[in-house]
Each structure stands twice: as structure tokens, then as C-alpha cells.
Amino acid sequence: MNWGEFFAMKGYGFYVWGSYGVALLIFIIEIVLVRHKRNITLQQLRLLRDAEKEEEGTT
């Protein structure tokens, strides 16, 4: 079996790769979002700390 035949999936390539491709895409998006969320959360915590420090400095 060559690769062309493999990807053709006997005419069902669109359905098979459409299933696996979209699932892979969704997994990647979720992983990126989870990482992004972590960065955002840590950034917000730092801003919160800085704001508190400034408040302490002014009083």
C-alpha cells in the first residue's frame, strides 16, 4: 500500500481525515487556550501585586 492509497481511504478519505483532522485541531486549540489562560492568570496576579505594592508605597 502506498501513501496515496492510504490517504484516499478507498474513497472515504474526506470522512476519515475530516474526523481525525478536526479532532486534532480541537485538541490543539484547547491546549493553547489552557496555556494562554495560565499566562493571563499569572499576569493578572502580578498586576494585582504591583497595585498593592504601589498602594503601600503611597500611604
Binding site: M9, K10, G11, Y12
Partner: peptide, 18 residues
């Protein structure tokens, strides 16, 4: 390859677990 569904059945390896 599946006797009835040819290669299309391979979606099962993702469909059922999901």
C-alpha cells in the same frame, strides 16, 4: 479493512472513545 464499511469504519477508533 472492514468487510461491510471498507475504510470508513476507521472513524470508530475516535468516535467511540470520544
Amino acid at each position: 479493512t472492514d468487510a461491510q464499511q471498507s475504510e470508513a469504519y476507521r472513524i470508530i477508533f475516535l468516535h467511540v472513545p470520544a
